[in-house]
Design a protein around this nucleic acid. Structure first.
Lengths: 232, 232
DNA sequence: CGTCAGTCGATTGTCGACAATCGACAGCAG
DNA sequence: CTGCTGTCGATTGTCGACAATCGACTGACG
């Protein structure tokens, strides 16, 4: 089994369905497709050059993930986000991340802490360049890592959904320019608490960190659509 | 709009897909379809008298729920459950129910407590008749209610997945006959703690309640298949 | 003018047939 | 006997056409 030139990449061999899922998912969480927007199967299928079968299966998946809402015989729309949804999202997010954090401290691997510090360094670096995009990416990396390092697969599954919706919310809000370096430095006490295995303090800090982010967004949120209750 | 005779039921008007989902889901969580078993599209479609299109969409959903595993071009099998899966399942379950419990206490509605007591009464009643099935149903009702009463939709979504897998695990284990009335009475201190708004105590009791149930099952679990790691 | 049955276009739900991919096995070379 | 290569059956992935359902519109009727 001769080892071929190392620069050969694995070729992409995903089904149409999977690629459609990723494509639509990215369009939704990036805000390109806005809440309430109708996803008409015939249209999208034609646009992507595929038949409706794999497209329907993709929409089915997105529906399970909660990114879209499928109304029987009436179509599929990008799910609306009410202020209550935002609050639920962030409270649930705090729950999941707290759990991950407890497990990480329980494991107590110094390499984990080092990895988290790595994300902080990248975040701070980006903040100094005032590169908001990079700051957000590092921030996401940090929080994703928190879940990943917990080693809890069920948690990771659940996190995916939550994480996607958080990205969507962040893409949709009016971006208020806070002091980016300040945002980055917010993560340091949390990492320190983890390093010191201080569960209570780490949990408290993380909870505040997430809650304040959630409140900030919830406050400026205007219920565009009527997710479940109406204003008739 | 004349009110028709009250004994008229809403007629079932679900798509084939939905009915297939429910049917297969029930077959899996009841243990009728065993972990590792292959679900061949052509076979099942013929057996149910439907085409493969709605069946595939149903399998897609079950795959998202984690009840089955879809291997590209190689078929779909009922997901295997390792001992590690059981432990993850119960630790996550404890997390979700604790969260629900905190919210219920925060809401502080006496009607909620009354409802929970209702489930306990039914459970105790069934236990005295030594009706294991009814005890399990009431137990499930109690824990489902806990989630429901929290009023947190995202939590409810997440719970569905967890709840289904718990049912599956309970259906698959060798049923050890414990003292049913003892099982029922385990719930009383939790309800009392909720009634007294004692978060810490309620949470501690609930956590123990779930952990002991999980440990009991995990101990007697024999890793049938090799979910992710192998014994070659 | 308001109400209600009937009709219509748009869209989703379902079907049967065809194409693509996989693992297993047979056959050949060394 | 060992290892590689090509073929085959089984199964999934995809397609285009048809059926079912919905909301909006129309128009008659009180």
């Amino acid at each position: 089994m001769a080892q071929l030139p190392a620069q050969l990449h694995q070729i992409e061999n995903k089904s149409r369905r999977e690629r459609i899922i990723e494509l639509l998912r990215e369009a939704i969480v990036s805000g390109e497709l806005k809440p309430g927007e109708a996803l008409i199967e015939t249209e999208i299928a034609a646009q992507l050059g595929v038949s409706r079968a794999p497209l329907r299966e993709a929409l089915q998946s997105l529906s399970r993930e909660g990114l879209v809402e499928a109304l029987p015989y009436r179509g599929t729309i990008v799910r609306n986000l009410s202020r209550a949804d935002i609050e639920e999202l962030y409270s649930f997010r705090a729950l999941l991340e707290s759990f991950a954090l407890r497990r990480i401290i329980e494991i107590g691997d110094p390499a984990h802490v080092a990895l988290l510090r790595g994300y902080f360094d990248a975040m701070l670096d980006a903040a100094k360049r005032d590169d908001m995009r990079a700051v957000n990416d590092s921030d996401r990396g940090f929080h994703d890592a928190l879940i990943e390092l917990s080693g809890h697969r069920l948690l990771q599954e659940s996190w995916q959904t939550v994480s996607l919706r958080v990205r969507q919310v962040m893409a949709l809000r009016n971006r208020r320019n806070r002091d980016l370096t300040k945002v980055a430095y917010n993560h340091i006490p949390i990492i320190d608490a983890i390093a010191e295995s201080d569960v209570a303090r780490a949990e408290k800090l993380l909870h505040e960190h997430i809650a304040s982010a959630g409140d900030l967004i919830a406050e400026m949120w205007e219920d565009g659509g009527t997710p479940n209750g109406a204003t008739p």
